[in-house]
Each structure stands twice: as structure tokens, then as C-alpha cells.
Design a binder for these strands. Structure first.
Length: 219
DNA sequence: CTCCTGACTG
DNA sequence: CAGTCCGGAG
């Protein structure tokens, strides 16, 4: 294990021991996780839950329903998630891809190699690196590390990276080249980071209360 | 860089 | 009442 790998594990354990297992999307429906990953783009998860609840009530939380429903109507149903017009289009573009490439068979989709699938997802308008990786890790259980704004901020503040705007793929490599390739670890690690981000590592950080307050910082 | 959007927080 | 939210496109 590399020096950096040990540091990352230390960071993970500090977070995990304070916050406990976060159980992100355990046993949740694969398709629902994919939809959630798109709806949560720059949006608080609480608002995404409302949108998903409404989709269930209207019985449109399926590839078939999203493909056929009127885009305007879809945008109204997902309205609580914000950016509802553009996200309605993104959902439709996404399910079109699902149908064209995999006949909406998510089991079949899962058999495809990780990076082939990643390239396909990135070719869809509205699916960027973070959304693609969230779908790959949390819905399809592929071993890839999800990087987000919190990840960059936390690594920067704890001096693991020297600039707060390092490249997405570089930061992803930093985790993947120094940790065991483990879906469960990647899943929990990112979840822990997000929780630290929204509870402590905000723009105005609450360092005194943070589980990472003594991590890699000279006092 | 700006726009996209509603809901919630401090 | 401004800032922010599990970003991405133009």
C-alpha cells in the first residue's frame, strides 16, 4: 500500500467511525438509481426524493414510460428537482440510449466492460463525468471512484491536492491507483465524503466539529 | 464564463 | 433574502 493509500484509508476510517455506514442505495432498484443520479445534478437530494416520489405516483418511473411520456408533462412531474426542463430532456435522452444500445435490458447493460460503458454514457448529452460514474458505481456496481465538488474541496483543504480545480480524472486516479479496487469501498468512501461536505466542509467550514479536523493538517 | 430551476437554510 | 444544493452544456 502506498503512502497516499494509507492516508486515504486513514481519512476513510475517520469519516466512517464518526458517521457510521451511510448505506447509499442498498438494494435499491437499478433504474431508479440511474434516474436519481441525473436528477441530483447540482440539486439537494431532498428535492430529488420529491421528484422520484411524484414519478412513482404517476407511474412513470420506468424506461418505457419515460420514453413515451410527453416531455412537457415529464418536466412538470420532476419539477421539485429543479432544472426540470433540461432534466426532462436529459432523462429522455438517457432512456433513448438505454433502448437503442441495450433494449432497456439493464442486466445486459451490466455485462458490458466498465470503460466501454463509461464512454457510451459520456456520449449522452446531459451525462458528464460525475453522473456517468455515479451510474456506473451505484447502479451498475462497477468499480469506479466518483469525484465531486466536495471531494475536490476536502482534498484541497487537507493538502492532498495543491489546487482546488484539479482535473476530474486526475483526482479519480488518485483514489483508484492508491486504493484496492473494491465496489463497496468506493461506494461508501464517496458517500462519506458527500456527508462530510454537506455537514462540515461547506464554503464556511465547521472544522471544530469535523471528524477530519486533525487529518493531514499541521497545527 | 453564464445559464439552467425549485426548495431549503442561515 | 442571498447562498447553496451528490453538474453539465454552450
Amino acid at each position: 500500500m502506498s503512502i497516499l493509500g494509507n492516508k486515504l484509508i486513514e481519512m476513510f476510517e475517520l469519516m466512517f467511525n464518526h458517521q457510521g455506514p451511510l448505506n447509499w442505495w442498498p438494494g435499491e432498484d437499478t433504474f431508479e438509481i440511474m434516474i436519481g443520479a441525473i436528477l441530483t445534478q447540482n440539486t439537494a437530494w431532498k428535492n430529488v426524493e420529491k421528484a422520484i416520489t411524484q414519478m412513482k405516483e404517476k407511474k412513470i418511473l420506468s424506461p418505457e414510460a419515460i420514453l413515451t411520456i410527453d416531455e412537457e408533462e415529464l418536466s412538470q412531474v420532476i419539477r421539485p428537482s429543479g432544472y426540470h426542463r433540461i432534466k426532462a430532456k436529459r432523462l429522455k435522452d438517457f432512456v433513448k440510449f438505454i433502448f437503442e444500445k441495450y433494449g432497456a435490458n439493464l442486466i445486459k447493460m451490466k455485462t458490458r466492460p466498465l470503460y466501454a460503458l463509461r464512454d457510451e454514457l459520456l456520449s449522452i448529452k446531459g451525462i458528464g463525468a460525475e453522473t456517468a460514474d455515479s451510474i456506473l458505481l451505484y447502479a451498475l456496481e462497477k468499480p469506479i471512484f466518483v469525484v465531486d465538488a466536495y471531494t475536490k474541496r476536502i482534498l484541497y483543504r487537507h493538502k492532498i491536492i495543491s489546487s482546488s480545480k484539479d482535473d476530474y480524472e486526475d483526482i479519480q486516479k488518485l483514489f483508484m491507483e492508491n486504493l484496492e479496487t473494491d465496489v463497496a469501498l468506493f461506494n461508501e468512501f464517496h458517500a462519506q465524503i458527500v456527508n462530510i461536505g454537506k455537514n462540515y466542509c461547506k464554503r464556511e467550514p465547521k472544522c471544530e466539529l469535523c471528524p477530519l479536523k486533525d487529518f493531514n493538517l499541521k497545527r
